[in-house]
Design a binder for these strands. Sequence first.
DNA 1: AGGCACAGAATGAACATTCAGTCGCAACAC
DNA 2: GTGTTGCGACTGAATGTTCATTCTGTGCCT
Lengths: 188, 188
Amino acid sequence: MIDKRQQILQATADMIAEYGLQACPMSKISARAGCGAGTIYRYFETKEELVKALFEDLIERLTEACLHEYDASQPLRDRFYRLWGNYYHYVLANPGQRALMEQLLASPIICNDQTDCALRTLHLTTHQLLDDGKHQGVFKDLSNEILNTITYGSLIMMSKKLHQSPEKFGTEVPVEALLGMCWDAIRC
Amino acid sequence: MIDKRQQILQATADMIAEYGLQACPMSKISARAGCGAGTIYRYFETKEELVKALFEDLIERLTEACLHEYDASQPLRDRFYRLWGNYYHYVLANPGQRALMEQLLASPIICNDQTDCALRTLHLTTHQLLDDGKHQGVFKDLSNEILNTITYGSLIMMSKKLHQSPEKFGTEVPVEALLGMCWDAIRC
DNA sequence: AGGCACAGAATGAACATTCAGTCGCAACAC
DNA sequence: GTGTTGCGACTGAATGTTCATTCTGTGCCT
């Protein structure tokens, strides 16, 4: 086996995304990972540790995706579209990871501190972006938290609904329009 | 005991909101409800049935709250602020119910059909509102699902964050501003 | 007496975790 | 090259716990 630890993480992600966190026994994870039940415990102390490790892994990949080709020296609007466009495309392309993240964030296993810590890089970038916009008089004079939450909430909910009930939306949902709506929401 | 069934539903809601759906054994529910473990089964066939009944109950109360003093003959903007203002105030005032709803919607116990059915009344109203707005040329020419999802996602995420980390927001978050952002997002 | 509502102990299933044993392999001796 | 020893990785059956659900007995009301 190349990297059993990675294999176990992947199996866990697959299982949780498919069956949900509560319906995901270690026995099934080990079966999916192609190893014995005990083997998991060579790599992770407890199930909780396993889930936490998975969370870190997820955030890392998400952060990387969001910052892809992001350039802080570009005009405001380009940066906004780049960052949130990256985000939206990523969660659309990886619905399993989105569902997984949602479940982890809602579960008591992952506490607030961990989330904040894992998302630090992304936070720094978005806050810089919002501060710039406010200095330029383009964004509404509200706290970064608010502006961020509105944008994030809109996009995550769209991707979620689109995944849950694609038939409710037309053949295609224009990404440009969605980002435009977010932009309109926070601009003056 | 006045109404044991209501008491059990209330106890279940409290327990799930506090400890989460997966960490909520029947034994604790019965203890909280002040009855024996077996008594619950006089009112609900299984735990799953109990949770479903709770869900119906929640949606009913939410619908009632949203439509409070809603008048379809009022101007568009007033209706929008009334409907979504009601919604936002309700979830702010009942964070337990919001958390509960989120967990139920994410759990496999509640399927899509049930959600749609329970939310039918609310759906009819919002779609009417959005259709009117589009006919008047006030709202963007996008599907109702999209306009609705953006608004809903923004507000639910705000109330969630506000509950999880109130310290991140100033002493007060202006409701008017939030509804204004949603309005700006969907208007032309 | 008869029946209804209830309590809480008993039951059995599902699960996380542990542990005794197996396997493969590398180092070493001859 | 061949036999031997030791060790770390691995397996999956066994363990103990937690839980939903059942069941038996009790008390109350008519």
